[in-house]
Write a protein that binds this DNA or RNA. Structure first.
Lengths: 224, 224
DNA sequence: GCTCAATATATTGCATACAATCGTGAGAAC
DNA sequence: GTTCTCACGATTGTATGCAATATATTGAGC
C-alpha cells in the first residue's frame, strides 16, 4: 500500500485492476466512505474517481443510492464483441504498418508475463493479462482514439467473462496471443487479422450469451 | 437559463454544445470559479463536469493550472478521421439492418433541422447539427459502444474544424446527409457506405491537415 | 405470523473553508 | 536597461461539515 496519497487516476486504475482480476464482482456496491478509508483520502477524490469510471461504463451510478460495479447485459456483451471484431483487425493492420522494434519488444515482454501467469496457474493474473494484451496491442498500433476505446472495452470484457463464463472453462488454452504476435512480426496481414478474429470469436463462444443465462448478478458462483 | 440547479451532466452537455458551436475556441481556459458563477453551482460540481469532459479529450487538465478546451494536433485529427472511416460504414450497415420506422423518422426530423439552419445561414447551428447528425445515426444504429465513441469524436471533430478549417469554406454544400439517409432507406448498403466514406473524405479534405498549418491556437482568426 | 407505517440510521449530494501551488509584478542588483 | 528574486494575488486541490435522500429497524395493526 502506498503511503503517499494516491492521485485520482491511481485510484481509478486500482479499481479497474480489481475489476479485471475479478476481485470486485459485477454489481457490488462501491461505498464512498469505505473506499475513502482504504485509499486514505477524502470522499471528494473517491467521487471523482467513481464518476470517471462511470463515464466508461465500468461503474453505474444510481442517484442518491451510490456507485456499483457494472453488470453488462447480454445485449451489451454482444455489442461489445461486435465492436471489438470491428476494431481489432484494424489494430492489427495498423500495428503491422507502424510498429517498430521497440513496440514488438513490448509485445514479447507481455507474452512472457502471460506465459508466466499460466505457468503459475494464476487465474486472476491470466484474465487481467489477457485483457491487457489487447490494450497493449491497441496502444502500439498508434491510433489514440482506438487505444482509448480498447482501454474501456477490455475491462468490460473481463466483467462480462465474470458474468457469463461457463464455469468449466479451462483458463484459456491460448498461445493464441503468441501466434497473433508471430503473424504481426511476419507482417502477414491476412493471417494476423484472421487469427485475431478467430481469437475473439473463440473467447465469445466460451460464454453463455444465449439468453438462458444469468440475468444480473451471479449469486450462485459468488459463494458456491 | 434554467433557474434550477443544473446536473453535472447538464453542465457537461452545455459545455460540449458551446464547443460544438464554436463559442468556446480551442485552447481557451475554463476557470472553475467563472463556470461556477455562470451555472450557479459550486466548484465541486464544475470540477466533476470538467474531469468528465477531460476523460473524452474535449478538455485538457493541467495540474495546478486549470482546465482548457483541447486543441487537437494534426496527428490527432488524422487519427480521428481514420477512426471515423472505420466506424461509420459499420454504423450505416447496422442502421440499415436494424433501424425501423421510428428511427428513420428521427433522421428525417434532423435533416429538417439542418435544412432550416442552412436556410437561415446560421453557421454555428450548421456545424453543430452536422456533428449531431452523425451522433444520431450512431445512436439509431443500435450499438451503444460505437454510439458512445461517436458522441466523443463528433465534438472533437468540431474542434478540429475550428482549428484547421480553411477560412473560405462555404458552410458545406451538403445535401450529403440527405443522400446518405436516402440510401439507408433504400437499404442499399453499398451506396450508403460509399456515400458515407466520400462524405468523411470530403470533410477531411476541406481542412488544412498538411502540417504547414496552425500549430496550436489560431490567433489570427480569433480576432481577425 | 405477516404486512405496512413511522422513526432512526447510514449514505450520498453539495457547498464552503482552508491549504497548496502557480503566475505576476514590483523592486533591487548589476 | 535588463535580469533576477521575492512577495503578493489568484486559482486549483482537498477535506470537512451540513443538508437531502434512501435504507433499515422497530413497532403497531390486522
Amino acid at each position: 500500500m502506498d503511503t503517499n496519497k494516491p492521485d485520482i487516476n491511481e485510484i481509478a486504475d486500482r479499481v479497474v485492476n480489481a475489476i479485471m482480476e475479478h476481485r470486485l464482482p459485477p454489481g457490488i456496491k462501491l461505498a464512498e466512505e469505505k473506499l475513502a478509508a482504504v485509499f486514505g483520502v477524502s470522499r471528494t477524490k473517491i467521487r471523482q474517481a467513481l464518476t470517471q469510471l462511470a463515464k466508461d461504463g465500468l461503474v453505474k451510478l444510481h442517484p442518491n443510492r451510490g456507485a456499483f460495479v457494472a453488470s453488462p447485459s447480454i445485449q451489451e456483451a454482444l455489442d461489445l464483441f461486435a465492436t471489438r471484431r470491428l476494431l481489432e483487425p484494424e489494430i492489427v493492420r495498423n500495428t503491422i504498418a507502424r510498429a517498430g522494434k521497440a513496440e514488438l519488444k513490448r509485445l514479447h515482454q507481455h507474452l512472457a508475463l502471460e506465459a508466466d501467469a499460466r505457468e503459475r496457474n494464476d487465474r486472476r493474473a491470466i484474465i487481467k493479462l489477457s485483457g491487457e494484451f489487447h490494450m497493449l496491442l491497441a496502444e502500439v498500433s498508434g491510433n489514440g482514439f482506438i487505444s482509448k476505446l480498447m482501454d474501456e472495452l477490455c475491462p468490460l470484457t473481463c466483467l462480462i467473462i465474470a458474468l457469463y463464463d461457463a464455469p468449466n472453462t479451462p483458463a484459456c488454452p491460448e498461445d493464441e496471443h503468441t501466434r497473433i504476435v508471430e503473424a504481426i512480426e511476419a507482417k502477414d496481414v491476412e493471417r494476423a487479422t484472421s487469427l485475431m478474429l478467430h481469437h475473439l470469436e473463440h473467447v465469445e463462444r466460451e460464454l453463455n450469451l444465449d439468453g438462458r443465462a444469468k440475468p444480473d448478478i451471479d449469486w450462485d458462483r459468488m459463494f458456491g
